[in-house]
């Protein structure tokens, strides 16, 4: 009765709905607020603003640093996404299919970067890259981002792989297909949503990473969150709201792709 829509008392039900409404507003508020703020004319973030304007958008697009850092972010996030996924696929296969001892421990090891505080990873990795003379390179950015993206990639792929009935693949092999062929033709299409979400997750993790990126940044290379972070600390400007709005739109775009992918796989 507590889980069926019809049989819940109206008192409980209405109070639950009210609470949920408030919570939903709480969750949506900052997102819509920041979008509105980016059109406000007040430099000092007075809200509601005296008038509406597009000048902060002009400022954003006029400043080559914003555009450059967005471009760097895009490169870093794409590479991170590809590498993390490529590392995660074979590892997930080995973990789910393998019959060796200690698989749980390995899984724990792979997901560890998710729980070790980012500040610590940042400080540690920075020290190492500095000694190797690699700080401020694209390599350092991507490598450090892959570390924290891996857990998300592994979890996504493993989850979809666990749901896949391996006997189907075995059947294909028995019917004469090569194992690799079977994996590509039979298994991969089924776990494709998991792989895609691994790639998307990794992309977003990298795209949004602040603390490590601030450490890795160099004169020639900084990502969008680094630019936002240093601006945020120094200047109070609605240009941050513009950058935020554009980031939200990108997340929205990626979510729509993700749900599209999910729908397609459901239709199968």
């Amino acid at each position: 009765m507590l889980l069926s829509h019809g049989s819940l008392g109206w008192k409980l039900k209405s109070s639950l709905y009210v609470i949920t409404g408030v919570i939903a507003a709480f969750l949506a508020l900052p997102i819509f607020f920041i979008m509105a703020l980016s059109f406000g004319s007040s430099q000092w973030l007075v809200f509601p603003p005296p008038s509406w304007t597009l000048k902060w958008y002009e400022r954003f697009f006029d400043n080559p640093q914003w555009i450059e850092s967005a471009w760097t972010s895009l490169q870093v996030a794409s590479l991170t996404s590809i590498i993390a996924t490529l590392l995660a696929i074979p590892a997930s296969f080995a973990l789910v299919r393998g019959k060796f001892r200690g698989r749980d421990y390995l899984y724990t090891f792979f997901t560890l970067p998710m729980v070790v505080p980012v500040v610590i990873i940042a400080v540690a990795v920075y020290g190492t890259f500095l000694n190797l003379g690699l700080t401020g390179t694209l390599f350092a950015f991507v490598t450090s981002h892959v570390i924290i993206a891996l857990p998300f990639a592994i979890i996504s792929i493993i989850n979809s792989l666990r749901l896949f009935d391996k006997s189907i693949e075995d059947a294909a092999v028995i019917c004469g297909a090569h194992r690799i062929q079977a994996i590509l033709k039979v298994t991969f299409p089924v776990i494709k949503p998991g792989v895609i979400s691994a790639a998307l997750f990794s992309f977003l993790v990298s795209w949004d990473e602040v603390v490590i990126s601030v450490m890795m940044a160099s004169p020639n290379l900084q990502t969008l969150p680094v630019k936002m972070w240093s601006t945020l600390r120094q200047d109070l400007t609605p240009v941050i709201a513009v950058a935020s709005t554009l980031l939200i739109l990108l997340s929205l775009f990626i979510m729509i792709i993700a749900s599209f992918v999910r729908k397609q796989s459901n239709h199968r």
């Binding site: 000092w44 973030l45 007075v46 945020l232 600390r233 120094q234 200047d235 109070l236 400007t237």
Partner: peptide, 13 residues
Amino acid sequence: WGGGAQSQQLIAS
């Protein structure tokens, strides 16, 4: 306040 922006925000608001 930890930075210039924040200080301006505090007094302006």
